[in-house]
Nucleic acid binder design. Structure first.
Lengths: 188, 188
DNA sequence: GTCTATAGCTCGATAGAC
DNA sequence: GTCTATCGAGCTATAGAC
């Protein structure tokens, strides 16, 4: 069970990175195979449903990774406002220091496929809901009322995704920095 | 000048729609040619730089259209907060009544190409800056200080883009509605 | 579990007649 | 300005040996 997952894992990890960088349609299976070093014959053995299955599991892996990052961010401060603000600031700082460019998680694939591929769209939706859940729980712990906490979880998700996308497109972390700056007003 | 632009215009309009729906890599030139009804031979006559040029001009056309929509929204109310709030509500209402699904403008192409195609990325950036400019001007007219108005223009852009993308992915207009609801807190 | 080979298709782009 | 024909490459997916 441990060694036999090796090729499979390499494929998923490489696919996650490339899908995030170049999108679903912009990334070919041959490219993924070549970069992962996995043998071509094993792709359809591990992923009988081909590219679609690979994308669904890649999105799930990416979502899990991001969710953990958010969770760690929330654990750093007891106050929800501070925690969220610091988390976004961290994203902004990491934005250009990270020399390995990495695209916007989930969103790139989501926008391409939401109208044409239901399993992939669903995986993206589940990912986003898991992010929102972490924010909402943090707000609940800080005393926000349940309905309000759920709503704000969605709004925070929106502003982070939008600011990330803008920062990515503009090549500047300013949108992320301004999002962080204006979080307190939003959560008042 | 009027009839000779016909094929060109059809190509750009069709390309704008398809790129928005399926992304840059997910949309083939043959598909665009077929849907537009334009003759294949004329594509490289009107767009010597091929697909890239078609994408750049498509993004510009989409950006101009969206910018005008925003501008019309801002003109509907004198108060900036009300105007922006109503504009987002309008997006939310239009979200599912519009039977012709249409994707998220600019963002889909931007995320796919920002790291790999500079001319297209630049066109997307210019589009986003033109949106922000409209919000900023509205805030200036409502008495916000210049620096603050510019910052809030970016933040509003972020939250709208993020909420739109989430609504699109989730298949629900809730993120847009919640964005609208929380705009006043942000602009206080 | 892995490998090669290849089918069958679509892609973007070009050439050259008209 | 338009059209056909076609190139070379890449794509997803499958077949079948090992």
């Amino acid at each position: 069970m441990s060694t036999k997952e090796s090729s499979r894992d390499k494929l998923i990890k490489t696919a996650s990175r490339l899908f995030q960088l170049q999108g679903y349609h912009g990334t070919g299976l041959n490219h993924i195979l070549k970069e992962s070093g996995a043998p071509k014959g094993s792709l359809y053995y591990h992923f009988p449903n081909g590219k679609e299955q690979l994308a669904v599991e890649s999105v799930q892996l990416t979502a899990e990774f991001v969710r953990n990052q958010i969770q760690r961010g929330m654990d750093k401060k007891t106050d929800a406002i501070e925690a969220i603000q610091e988390f976004i600031k961290g994203m902004a700082e990491q934005f250009h220091t990270d020399d390995s460019q990495q695209g916007v998680p989930i969103a790139t694939v989501a926008l391409e496929t939401a109208l044409t591929n239901e399993p992939i769209r669903e995986a993206c939706q589940n990912g986003y809901e898991s992010f929102q859940q972490v924010f909402t729980e943090k707000l609940l712990q800080s005393g926000y009322e349940e309905r309000r906490a759920r709503e704000l979880g969605i709004v925070i998700n929106s502003i982070i995704e939008g600011a990330f996308m803008l920062s990515f497109t503009m090549g500047s972390n300013e949108p992320l920095l301004l999002a962080a700056k204006n979080i307190p007003a939003l959560l008042k």
